[in-house]
Amino acid sequence: MKYKFSSSPHLRGNDTTKRIMLDVCLALLPACIAGCLLFGWKALILLAICVATSFASEIIYKLCSKVSLKKALAEFDFTSIVTGLLVGMNLYADSPWYVAVLTCVFAIVVVKMLFGGTGKNVVNPAIAGRIFAFISFGAALGGTFNSNMGFDDVYHVQGPTSVGATVHHVTATPLQYLFGATSELSNWDLLFGTGVNGTIGEVCKLALIIGGLYLVLRNVINWRWPVIYTASMVVLTVCLNKFNFDLAIPSILSGGFVLGAIFMATDYVTTPATKAGNYVYFVFLGLLTALLRHLTQSESVSFAILLGNLIVPLIDSFVINKPFGKVTAKEGK
């Protein structure tokens, strides 16, 4: 009889990358469903295109790198589905189909696979995809390049600084609050996404928060990180706006912040490995988001996260855990 020979430990936990990514997919579903209810069939079709394209691009990329189809399918770990869903959620419901396809191909092939695939990407593929889409297809998405403000990521800001911007989305946008305009939207509207303009997945904050709670309960993400991100963002926003505390809630519930804070900023691959590093990272993200929003007068969550992603290797090489019982030079004296 032959017995298996291996190195300890012989027990392993139940969590696998695949299971975690499936959990993320499940957590994204409420927001996807809410997006479909708010924007109709075209939202559902767009999400489906994104998921299918992402899945296909990963498999095709692997086939091109001479990985057998069987192995490529065996290696499938739901990360491409997560990216596909997130890209779809970051597009407007009336975006053309080819924007969705190109964005997903960019996110998967350029941002993820060219850097080495799952776990090796430097920036979050969906964030890079969102920025790619809005830089490359601004016109197709509603002419969002604005001479007053430079690049406007998601919203037309109809506040005082942006009068005359090409208006494609006529609904009042919540970010106006931050930039001094008055709006008829209440905080409840912002929470449920009713009457709010935005991308498919970001409008219904309640659904996103429900998904986030699921991830926290499943131990996929640590509740601290979105909370710290939010807190530092709110603090700086309130300070920058002459201590106008009325802005606190709208600043959280506007734009892509909740989606970014719960699902994009917490992506394992692009966050530091240590607890201490994560404190640094999420405080930095919060401050950067508030600052960029203030300076550009537009939605800047995705840019903040992209820049944050880029400094993660730096954080990881400077914030290293002190081993248990390691005596620092000072204590040794």
């Binding site: 776990g119 240590t274 994560n278 855990n321 002190k322």
Partner: peptide, 28 residues
């Protein structure tokens, strides 16, 4: 009773860092 193990790519989740009783960073 045990899991036979085929490793996949590290996803940098930091769980090994969180659980290490010696506060090391096994992933690195």
């Amino acid at each position: 009773e045990y899991v036979s193990v085929l490793p996949t790519a590290c996803i940098h989740c930091g769980r090994c860092v969180d659980v290490c009783p010696m506060h090391l960073e096994p992933l690195y």
